[in-house]
Design a protein around this nucleic acid. Structure first.
Lengths: 135, 135
DNA sequence: TTATCAATTGCAACATAGTTGCGTTTATGA
DNA sequence: TCATAAACGCAACTATGTTGCAATTGATAA
């Protein structure tokens, strides 16, 4: 029927109310969101523990990934166009705290980390002021 | 007398036992460290709250800066060679959890974040396996 | 050197993010 | 429809970090 349902099925996860709700929020948001926001946006009441379990199940299945840590809490997003090993940078606004994906930017690294280091993933977080808070 | 003392004086901070101890640990470590490590390495007993207050005082004064968030806890370091707006990337080992500064690497970004965004700081965290955990 | 006073500390309580155990409910597949 | 394993809600717990307050201590001035 809908996209959420088929994503869950593809990943061998039961299509429970909570999972559908959370997944639809991710699809609808189109930007990285945190557990707190999920609780606030969800129409049906979800238990905090259950939301974390849903997030962990999604993470394990690769349905979402951890965009970055914002202060003390994690921010998650659908992988969309980014691969596991290299993703678009994220922008975090110092003013309003909002998160944006900078899909138009690419980040290159120069030099090598050193002998013996195996690089698996690169996370880039850019901090500053968003258009609304800049003016 | 010693470097720690003069750093505190330059920044108008009282040279208390706790501050000297924490600052010496940073100087001695030569790598990013977390509050937990500070508690473990400190010879004289320091209160958890006091360590956080020392860290916050140092952050405010610019003596240290937050290298990045590792899971749920922050990792701090002396700024050394890196400016406020752009710093060397950090390497976090998936195996042993150790943190390393990749001072030999530089990170460039291509493209612009979009109209109206003001970029202030860029944080790069590279995850993978360190030489010891790779073999 | 000693007195003074604001800054700092230690303790305890609190806040927040995330996890876990357990009994109950629910989605799936036979 | 029924059986069953997975998922859920609740409550308790862990870990990181913060805050209020009384006691202590470092820097300055006498």
């Amino acid at each position: 029927m809908d996209r959420a349902q088929s994503i869950l099925r593809e990943n061998g996860l039961k299509a429970t109310k909570g999972r559908l709700e959370v997944l639809k929020l991710f699809i609808g948001a189109g930007r990285p969101i945190a557990q707190k926001e999920i609780m606030a946006m969800a129409r049906l009441k979800l238990d905090r523990a259950s939301v974390y379990r849903v997030l962990n199940a999604f993470l394990e299945a690769g349905i979402i990934h951890k965009a970055y840590m914002d202060g003390r809490h994690a921010v998650f997003e659908l992988p969309d166009s980014c691969g596991e090993d290299h993703c678009h940078p994220h922008f975090s606004c110092r003013g309003c705290g909002a998160t944006t994906c900078l899909k138009g930017m690419k980040v290159y690294s120069e030099g090598s980390p050193g002998k013996g280091f195996t690089m698996e993933r690169q996370k880039v977080l850019i901090e500053g002021l968003c258009p609304r808070c800049s003016s």
